[in-house]
């Protein structure tokens, strides 16, 4: 059903029930996302896509559009709120871009650039987190995990459908865990997909390391904003 909504003061026509974040992209408005991926069910964990809908702030990946909605994306307070959310993630874990294999193709880093983060306004925590390297093909660098839960939901054992990654405990004790027995029977293709699915450099495929020179890496060739808007035009 065709409906009309107002997006940043502009009236646009769209289909009822489509996710707001996709409608915005289709109309050339980039909203940063870290947990959401177009075409996959929404997780709503990172909140980086927060916008104002009819006066209330909500994550745009969780909102199906409805007739007459008024949506604000580009407002000073909202831009700052999204920036603060990204800054929180940088302060919460240990995100050392210069020493990270994922640098240049990391979505957290790319979104940091898009929201204009130069420094985190929050004190950096430097939490001690242990690495997990028992699995044969996967290296888990917990310092970088942002608990988006993409791997938890979307990486499953092909045979049994069981989850391979889980989040253990809560709050500051939360930790990403890997089922080693299941992980060790992941085909190489699935290992590659899991590493790519991770928006940060937490899930690393062993034996790869730095495979692209600086200047030719994913988001250097094309920014995350361009990629998001381009994907929607197809």
């Amino acid at each position: 059903m065709n409906i009309r909504i107002t997006l940043d003061g502009k009236e646009i026509e769209t289909t009822a029930g489509t996710l707001l974040v996709d409608v915005a992209a289709d109309n050339g408005v980039y909203i940063p996302t870290l947990c959401y991926q177009r075409g996959k069910p929404c997780l709503g964990t990172c909140r980086a896509c927060s916008v104002r809908v009819n006066g209330n702030v909500m994550a745009s990946c969780t909102v199906p559009v409805a007739e007459g909605m008024t949506v604000e994306v580009d407002a000073a307070d909202l831009n700052d709120m999204r920036k603060a959310l990204v800054e929180l993630l940088f302060a919460e874990g240990n995100h050392n871009c210069p020493s990270c294999e994922k640098s240049g193709r990391c979505e957290l880093q790319a979104v940091g650039y898009e929201v204009g983060m130069l420094v985190s306004r929050f004190p950096y925590r430097f939490p001690p987190r242990t690495r997990e390297h028992v699995a044969k093909y996967i290296w888990l660098e917990r310092d970088r995990c942002i608990f988006c839960q993409r791997c938890v939901e979307f990486v499953r054992d092909h045979e049994t459908g069981r989850k391979i990654f889980t989040i253990d405990d809560r709050g500051t004790h939360a930790s990403i865990e890997i089922d080693v027995a299941l992980a060790d029977r992941m085909p190489p293709e699935q290992v590659r997909e899991a590493a790519e699915l991770c928006p940060v450099g937490c899930i690393i495929a062993k034996g790869v390391g730095y495979d692209k020179p600086i200047g030719q890496r994913k988001f250097e060739v094309k920014s995350i904003r361009e990629r998001t808007l381009e994907r929607s035009r197809k």
Binding site: F90, N94, N96, C97, P98, S99, L118, V119, S120, Y124, F126, P127, P128, R129
Partner: peptide
């Protein structure tokens, strides 16, 4: 003005903050 990762958040030397 803070210039570079070390001035901005501690950088590589700050890797000792976890120990």
């Amino acid at each position: 003005i803070s210039v570079g990762a070390c001035a901005v958040w501690g950088g590589v030397p700050a890797m000792r903050n976890m120990v």
